[in-house]
């Protein structure tokens, strides 16, 4: 009997390594082919782990906040001077914006223009990030129960963060703009020419399918075009900051590592998509 137990144990130990290597490779293959079982397992686990991640993330968030706070204290004089200058510039822009808003309203009335649908939103906390080379995602503490659905836009104060790719009951995963699989239809703010911004798992974005590749200047701003109907038009995405291999590089307005709370927009075009919620926004979101 003892011999049999020993033999079984030896055999198990001998084959454990190849067994688990093959199992891991099989899982990788299933992930590569977007196997529904893998997606389902991921969603279910996200729901179970989300509360734990939420608690576990708080000490690290506190450390990040403390480092931020020290940095901002060290740079307080320079920051103050910058803010004064920016404030003066923004006061000028505020006056211009008020004038344009009134003018725009008047023109819309004259043309009987159809108003853009307003988006409702859910505010959520970012409780986890993936920071490896494979994916750039974040986990939110709001899920399908709070009205979050796959494809919805996630925004912060300064612009677009990404899109929802997985939803569990109480949590969801955001595919960040910088992820290799992210593609967002955008337009240049100055001339409304369309393009696509794409991530490559680095901190900047690439600009694809633009007719203007060789003639784009640094400083050009990009906003969502609203094409496809899932993202509201006009959300700030990023700014052209240079080029690499002839392709313009875009720095996103939002660095997800620096924000804690985001808004998930429930935006649907009337008649084109099924409306899930009553629009409730009165003020612009950004």
């Amino acid at each position: 009997m003892l011999k049999l137990v020993l033999l079984t144990r030896q055999t198990t130990q001998r084959f454990a390594l190849p067994f688990f290597v093959v199992a891991a490779l099989a899982f990788i293959l299933m992930s590569r082919t977007d196997n529904p079982w893998v997606i389902d397992a991921r969603t279910r686990t996200l729901d179970v782990l989300a509360p734990v991640i939420d608690v576990a993330s708080r000490p690290v968030s506190a450390v990040n906040a403390a480092v931020d706070s020290v940095n901002s204290w060290l740079a307080v004089a320079a920051e103050n001077e910058n803010l004064r200058r920016e404030n003066a510039r923004l006061m000028h822009w505020q006056a211009a914006a008020r004038q344009l808003l009134a003018e725009n309203r008047e023109f819309r009335e004259l043309l009987s223009s159809v108003a853009e649908p307003r988006a409702a939103f859910v505010t959520a906390r970012i409780i986890g990030h993936s920071s490896g080379t494979f994916v750039r995602t974040a986990v939110l503490n709001a899920g399908s129960r709070e009205g979050v659905r796959v494809g919805q836009a996630v925004v912060a104060t300064h612009g677009l963060v990404g899109r929802i790719t997985e939803t569990a009951r109480h949590s969801s995963r955001v595919l960040l703009l910088t992820d290799l699989n992210s593609r967002i239809p955008v337009v240049f703010e100055s001339n409304r020419r369309p393009a696509i911004v794409s991530g490559d798992n680095s901190r900047v974005l690439s600009l694809l399918f633009t007719e203007l590749a060789g003639t784009i200047d640094s400083g050009e701003r990009l906003v969502t075009s609203g094409e496809g109907g899932m993202l509201p038009p006009g959300i700030p995405v990023g700014i052209v900051t240079g080029s690499q291999g002839g392709l313009p590089r875009v720095t996103p307005f939002v660095d997800p590592a620096r924000i804690e709370h985001v808004r998930v927009l429930d935006y649907t075009l009337p008649g084109l998509m099924q409306t899930t919620r009553e629009a409730g926004m009165l003020e612009p979101l950004w």
């Binding site: 893998v38 494979f134 995602t137």
Partner: peptide, 10 residues
């Protein structure tokens, strides 16, 4: 892998 959203098995 499940927590970070990496391809399962990596």
């Amino acid at each position: 892998d499940l927590m970070t959203g990496l391809p399962l098995g990596i």
